[in-house]
Design a protein around this nucleic acid. Sequence first.
DNA 1: ACAGTTTTTGCAACCGGTTGCAAATTGAAT
DNA 2: ATTCAATTTGCAACCGGTTGCAAAAACTGT
Lengths: 339, 339
Amino acid sequence: MSVTLKDVAERAGVSRSAVSRTFTDGASVSDKMRKRVEQAAQELGYHPNALASSLTTGRTKLVGLVSNNFHNPYFLDVFAHFTQGLQDVGLRPLLVNLSDETDPANSMRMLTQYSVDGVIVASSTLPPSFSIAFQDAGVPVVNSFGRFSSAPVVPVVGIDNVEAGRMAARTLVARGYRRLGFMGGPKIATSTQDRFAGFVSELENYSDIDLSYSYADFYSFSAGRREMERLLIGTPAEAYFCGDDVLSIGALSAIQDAGLSVPQDIGIIGLNDMEMAGWQNINLTTIQQPLDQIVRVSIEIMIDMLSQSQKTYNPQSKVFPCRVIERGTLRPLGASQLA
Amino acid sequence: MSVTLKDVAERAGVSRSAVSRTFTDGASVSDKMRKRVEQAAQELGYHPNALASSLTTGRTKLVGLVSNNFHNPYFLDVFAHFTQGLQDVGLRPLLVNLSDETDPANSMRMLTQYSVDGVIVASSTLPPSFSIAFQDAGVPVVNSFGRFSSAPVVPVVGIDNVEAGRMAARTLVARGYRRLGFMGGPKIATSTQDRFAGFVSELENYSDIDLSYSYADFYSFSAGRREMERLLIGTPAEAYFCGDDVLSIGALSAIQDAGLSVPQDIGIIGLNDMEMAGWQNINLTTIQQPLDQIVRVSIEIMIDMLSQSQKTYNPQSKVFPCRVIERGTLRPLGASQLA
DNA sequence: ACAGTTTTTGCAACCGGTTGCAAATTGAAT
DNA sequence: ATTCAATTTGCAACCGGTTGCAAAAACTGT
């Protein structure tokens, strides 16, 4: 079937160790030997079996990439960045779809069966128990888009959602909105909880603000639309901070269909700045998560943990500042504040 | 570190083979023995190492899932289906992002290093050389969303793009459009070539049709928008068949911004029926690819190939019928045909 | 040319499993 | 009880690599 170490050794007339050494860097081989082995390997089309070597080295260079957000277009961007970033540093993403899972045990089992070197949990809606379960199994974990904490159990990379909530509040207030709405994602998502907390806390600095809030069932278009339809039955707020972009787009669609216009009648600000938010027919004002930084640093931390053979890694949260991307769903800064 | 076969064997006071056998189904073990081993395994928290066993069995249950479409939201749907479907049958997707690759060699090497059991190439824009390269390396390959052929080199699962092109033509003609446009994806994509061929051939059945055509650079929003902007400078057609949904949405956005309305001034029909096409603020009339069937059958074929230890698999194309999903970007069937 | 040092090489054991084969056990039948 | 067949078990070799250790080879300096 496939050509092995032994084949190359025989062909080159050397020992198996010699062959192994030419393919492990840092090993002691003379130039003569290396040439000879490489030649033989070339001729036979030999490539070392990564899995076999993992047996002795204990490293597979496999990284579990686990997520449950397979219906939020933002996560295609996320996957694109992660797969690219991981393969650039020689790691291989083993993709795990946790959409219907509520118990980490199954995925844990499969990840340990494949002895992944580490796990990246890329989700803002998975309960922390998942990350912790992986970590307890002795596997390095980093939780991207997780909840910030000054002393996290698992390294977290993302944004400070509380601060993002504040930023949304400031942005709306600065544009003269006074009756504000928070339309969160699922209530159990830590991201939504934190954004809400920040949003509320910032508004306490202002006296004349009216705040209402509610939650959509998922981070999805239809949930956002449904929730906004519900809100429009009553007296809607002047502007909403929506849980994320896809939710915002759902809300926008409901508003349009109700014959109202954005940003004149209702303002919307989202969060993520997914590619689609910039499409001209959406043109969503939103708070941008610095995706490439988050991914880059997530991978850096993972590499760091992998190099520390000890499990004495001291988990840290790394958060990156967000910024408001001004587009067309909020009235501009200097505009008049009353219809 | 982790608990091994040997540990369990010692604890249970049996041979290593016995333990191995209780975890390989189809092996001969008495009930007594199995109970005993399972108990010991339980106590130690043992789980067999899939990679180690792959060494002797020659099966890793790893499947390469390779694609270069990480910027088309449709492919999030595709990945969601594939990851779910694969893990449901006990296979693990090793995700490969080919976005910037032009040469199969690198990805080939890495896939063989990890001795994947098979490769699923999920892309309509990768040149066939990729699938063929994998196949030549002796790995079972199925090409999802590839080009139909009655005697394919590699099994193909998808739709008959030529027929889809015809269907688009019939749909437009039936709605009274006479000046038709084909706005393809990248000219080198087989999907675009075939859709064009079908579109043209069907129109030969009609005498009074005016056909124009052009191509967008990628299957992406911005490429679609750019191309439509260009078309609107001249005299646009009455209706366009666009390369795919995301391209259609780009085109729609250009049309709107030009102050024209859909479907009154210009009709658009897309292809894919990605989730977003059904969003009420997009509401795109489109030709639906039966995604779940395509994925399901792709996986079935893969399993089939894996079970045939021989490589005597006779590759076949499996194509599934598409259907038109009527939404709001084409005038309805019975409508008057002139403005 | 020789002893001493450094580098290179091969041997053999090991990583965590699987499996063909023969020995041991069990069960059935007389 | 005894024979024979069927089932279960363990031994040992193997899958494709890696690596500690000691022997061999290559340098060094004199």
